[in-house]
Write a protein that binds this DNA or RNA. Structure first.
Length: 610
RNA sequence: GCCGAUGUGGCUCAGUGGUAGAGCACUCGAUUCGUAAUCGAGCGGUCGUGGGUUCAAAUCCCACCAUCGGCUCCA
């Protein structure tokens, strides 16, 4: 049997079918809204003891939260889907009814649905709208809905998963059973959605990271603690070197600080009071120390350490801005259920820096940081990010510092995005406890959002640590701090990049840039010699010594996503040249070794294509 | 942390109460080969860990660990 053609292996069917998000399509909003009601009706038919709560549409489908004495299983989903199909086939009219609050209350009491009563309490306006499916099931709902269940296509609906979810998103409240589903206008759309989902799973950094040998996890080391293999480490250090260069150009000064520090340090910063439970447990020398909270903890952030360096001398306004930068590895005891691949880990390295500036320098310095982040994102070809202004929730007491400091910090961030004309949205309650942030958010392959870069304006830690500088008039003044991390964490960034590139790293970041493939073993000495030349100019090259036939060597190099393959045989040896085949462009023909060396050097220096 | 699912050689997976399987990888042998898999043989698993039920457990039960999907959290 012939193997699948290369075309079949690399073919991507063009995205002919447009799949709108729910928020972009009024039709889908109705379909998904009604489908969630149909699902709730089906669930209550099959499980009469189940109580319904809420069931909104979401961007790719819908869900409904149920209070059920028994958790649902995959098997239940099949039965529920079957029942939904029956309901749809009955062609039930979906009718809207407006009732008074008292009437709604009475009807809810009739069917004994306490959650609905709570929901009713939250609805401010009157009349209350109710949507009926036929005459057997209804729910409080703002709508809109399709007019008849016949408008739904059972073959365009799929129930996807079951999950626990807290009532009102509050972990102190009851845990409900959530069923996620998706619904489309046509079976073709559903099929396309499922195809894309399968495609997304193929890009998952956990899968690709394993296949490409970039990082591992070990049960013996512990959950959320990635170990970087030689290949993954090349990516990491290439990214670090790239950023380090950018930062040196911009006047940053590298520093190095310890991985642990006294609890007292974090008491001054306020982190201990705030995040005690999210740190790895304190190391105390004896029971006495333990009882008095005297001990050391693994650092979960670098700022207090950098602050100590700032404070180690009396600073003049002439020294500011002072930009202390460190690839600082921090440890956070994240909840076990939160861990996932490289996106959320317990030990990670921040590309951290703390800028100590005069109040007058703040705006300018903030803009410079944003410029750096944009430069970095551009070099990495990260195009689809969102900028979030993360401000404090005025109704929460989880922040330190006075209103004046917060207002000043928030307005500094506002001024910056306005100056830049940057598209952004506001995230209420997303601020750090010491100050507001400008965050850069990206999506992973499975549409989950993650924060990468961040810039934070902080008037509070300078206060808590009593930071000063001598101003030009000889008086002592308080500096402002900017906390910033363009990558956020190396781990998360690399996770995102793996998915963004689907494992096809640009040549300057690829762990192996060139693999030399010998047509026969007798050409291996030449391949070795060329590899040595490549290594000498800082390119990353290796020789495939497996002795397999060329077809197999190419296949393996493709599977390993090696960007440049250099084939050597008699012709090449004779002309001191290489047959170049790239993953991106296929066969490029025979190129002299000196030219290949020059091109790779260029690629590594300028981060452009080979 | 909570709800649910999953855990079989390095990798991907089959095996539902009766002595552990396949492909790839790896090793060895043959082949000396020009742009996506040469042929053959061999090595390799106390079936996540620990208990229990049973004449007998990868398979059933319990606990723990890890992973996955959500929820909550995220300096």
């Amino acid at each position: 049997m012939p193997l699948r053609s290369s075309q079949a292996m690399s073919a991507e069917s063009p995205d002919k079918i447009h799949l709108p998000k729910t928020s972009e399509s009024a039709a889908l909003q109705k379909i998904r809204h009604t489908t969630s009601h149909v699902m709730a009706m089906a669930v209550q038919k099959l499980f009469p003891k189940v109580q319904v709560t809420i069931g909104p549409w979401i961007e790719n489908g819908f869900y409904y939260d149920f209070d059920s004495p028994e958790p649902f299983t995959e098997k239940d989903l099949k039965a529920i889907k079957k029942e939904m199909t029956k309901i749809i086939r009955r062609q039930l009219p979906v009718t809207r009814e407006e009732v008074s609050r008292a009437e709604a209350q009475q009807r809810i009491q009739q069917i004994q649905e306490p959650y609905k009563l709570e929901i009713l309490g939250d609805i401010k306006q009157e009349p209350i709208t109710i949507y009926h499916l036929g005459d057997q099931w209804w729910d409080l709902c703002a709508g809109p809905h399709v007019a008849n269940t016949a408008e739904l296509d059972p073959d365009a609906i799929a129930l996807e998963s079951v999950a626990g979810a807290y009532w009102r998103g509050d972990e102190t409240k009851a845990q409900l059973q959530r069923i996620y589903g998706t619904a489309w206008e046509s079976p073709e759309q559903l099929a396309e959605y499922q195809r894309r989902k399968a495609e997304a799973i193929r890009r998952d950094h956990r899968k690709l990271g394993k296949e490409l040998g970039l990082f591992i996890f070990s049960d013996l080391v512990g959950p959320g603690l990635p170990l970087w293999t030689p290949k993954g480490t090349i990516i990491r250090s290439t990214l670090e070197n790239f950023l380090q260069q950018q930062q040196l150009k911009r006047g940053y000064q590298p520093v190095v600080t310890p991985h642990i520090g006294r609890v007292d340090l974090f008491k001054v910063s306020g982190h201990w009071q705030k995040y005690k439970d999210d740190l790895f447990p304190m190391m105390a020398e004896d029971a006495d120390a333990e009882a008095n909270e005297q001990g050391f903890v693994l650092k979960a952030m670098n700022c207090p350490f950098h602050i100590q360096i700032y404070k180690s001398d009396l600073r003049s306004y002439r020294e500011l801005p002072m930009r202390l930068a460190e690839f600082g590895t921090v440890y956070r005891y994240e909840q076990s259920g939160e861990l996932g691949g490289l996106m959320r880990v317990r030990g990670f390295t921040q590309d951290d820096a703390h800028l100590f500036v005069t109040p007058e320098q703040l705006d300018d310095e903030f803009l410079k940081v944003v410029d750096l982040i944009q430069t970095v994102f551009q070099a990495l070809q990260l195009k689809s990010f969102k900028a979030r202004l993360s401000f404090r929730d005025p109704n929460s007491d989880k922040y330190i510092g006075g209103d004046e400091a917060w207002d000043k910090a928030e307005s500094a961030i506002r001024r910056a995005v306005e100056t830049l004309g940057m598209e952004h949205f506001e995230g209420m309650g997303e601020a750090a406890f010491y100050g507001p942030k400008l965050d850069f958010i990206v999506q992973d392959a499975l549409d989950r959002e993650w924060q990468l870069g961040t810039v934070q304006v902080d008037y509070n830690l300078p206060e808590r640590f009593d930071l000063e500088y001598v101003a030009d008039d000889g008086t002592r003044k308080r500096p402002v701090m900017i906390h910033r991390a363009p990558f956020g964490s190396l781990e998360r960034l690399i996770g995102i990049l793996i998915e963004e590139y689907a494992g096809d790293f640009p040549v300057w970041l690829a762990p192996v840039q060139v693999r030399l493939l010998a047509v026969g073993d007798e050409f291996l000495p030449f391949a070795n010699q060329v590899a040595a030349q490549l290594l000498a100019i800082g390119a990353r090259a290796e020789v495939d010594r497996s002795g397999d036939r060329l077809g197999k060597l190419i296949r393996n190099a493709e599977k390993d996503k090696i960007p440049v393959m250099a084939i050597v045989g008699a012709k090449e040896v004779e002309a001191n040249s290489l047959s170049i085949r790239t993953r991106a462009a296929g066969e490029l023909g025979i190129i002299p070794v000196v030219e290949v060396l020059a091109r790779l050097k260029q690629t590594n220096e300028t981060h452009t294509d080979f």
